Amino acid sequence: MNLHLSQSDGFLRVAAASPQIRVADVEGNAEVALAAVRDAAERGVRALVLPELNLTGYTAADLFHNRTLLHACEAALVHILDETRELPIVFTIGLPVTVAENIYNCAAVCCAGELLGLTAKKYLPNYGEFYERRWFAPAPTDPVWLEFAGQGPVPLGSGLVYRCCDEGTEDLALGIEVCEDLWVPAPPSTEMALAGATVILNPSASDEIIGKADYRRSLISNQSARLYCAYAYADASEGESTTDMVFAGENLVYENGSKLAATKLLTCDMAIADVDLDRLVAERRRSTTWTRAGDAPEATT
């Protein structure tokens, strides 16, 4: 796949944003996502993560089974790709994707008008206030190749690594894991980092309960330190249904355990930071216990 991005002295500007959405208003949500992508690109951001299922809203519930909604998401992604052909930025769009009888909770990875792949959520929470198995299937064990949004074939699966092939950006490899995938005992980001990913993006919908924000920050900090990576996390925010959950839109960027940027709760702001990819690779080379895993599945065309 081609990530036509540029770095400056080994640094890459990364951002996480929470545009204000309306549940099931796919066309409207596509426009606010476009506005966020354009704003980020104007501010020099080269990798942007938007929240989980941001085209529909995470709380669309049984509307995920509605064929009109599913088709509207694919059409909206076509529009977003067309409108971002000239922008030097890679970004995620959260949407449901159907393959045969299954619906997957996906992050579409987009760059310069190209759909690079669809990272599907692997671990679906179905406890407490979460009911995701009512609507979605876990990511397939092996990537599925399909035509989607007028492009393809593109891979749909978990653990995909998106590599940059441009000269001078050989250290840029992106991994995507969706929300709950970070909270499990063996997150997919571990294998992605061992396969070379230096930046992990997490489109999420993490609701607020007492003590959860501190735990969430600790998870991201520890994972970025353990993997010697940059980790950008975008949370759902205003516009989601409050039937069972409240979302505060805390967006975070960490590098090797250190918090570089964070937004205040309930603000819909964008967290932006310059991450030092050269330093991350140097730390991996210095660590004698860093062991490169076998090749992860790659999104290549």
Rank of each mutant, 00 (worst) to 15 (best):
R134S: 09
A112G: 10
T141M: 03
L194E: 08
E86Y: 01
V154I: 14
G168D: 01
D166Q: 09
V97S: 11
A108L: 06
A108D: 01
I103D: 07
V99K: 10
K121L: 13
Y123M: 03
P153G: 07
T98M: 15
V184S: 04
E208Y: 12
R134C: 11
D171R: 09
G168K: 02
C106L: 03
N105C: 03
A193C: 04
E129M: 14
A108T: 01
L182E: 13
L87E: 12
L194I: 06
P155R: 12
G113T: 08
S158V: 02
E191Y: 05
V154P: 10
G94K: 10
A107G: 10
L146D: 13
M192R: 11
F130L: 01
G168F: 02
L172V: 11
T198L: 09
E167C: 01
G152D: 00
P187M: 06
C165I: 07
P185N: 09
P96L: 13
A173E: 09
L201W: 10
A197C: 08
E147H: 13
P138V: 04
W183Q: 08
S206R: 01
T98A: 15
T92N: 04
P187G: 05
A193P: 00
E180A: 14
E101F: 00
T141H: 07
V90N: 01
E132I: 02
D207K: 00
E86P: 13
S206Y: 02
A193K: 00
E147D: 15
T169H: 02
T92P: 03
P140R: 08
Y131M: 04
T92R: 09
F130T: 01
G159V: 12
G175N: 02
L182S: 04
A107H: 11
P187S: 08
V161L: 00
R134P: 08
Y123R: 05
R134W: 14
L201M: 12
L194Q: 14
N202V: 14
D207T: 00
E114Y: 00
T92Q: 06
Q151K: 13
G128I: 04
D142N: 14
P187W: 02
E147V: 14
C179M: 10
F148L: 12
E180V: 08
E191L: 14
G168Q: 04
E132L: 08
P96G: 13
A107S: 12
D142A: 15
E170V: 03
V109K: 13
A100F: 12
A107D: 09
D166N: 08
V90I: 05
D166K: 02
P143Y: 07
A197Q: 08
V199E: 03
P203S: 02
A107Y: 11
G152I: 03
D142Y: 14
E170W: 06
V99D: 11
P88R: 10
E180F: 14
P155M: 12
L194D: 06
N105A: 06
L87H: 00
W135T: 06
K122H: 05
T119M: 09
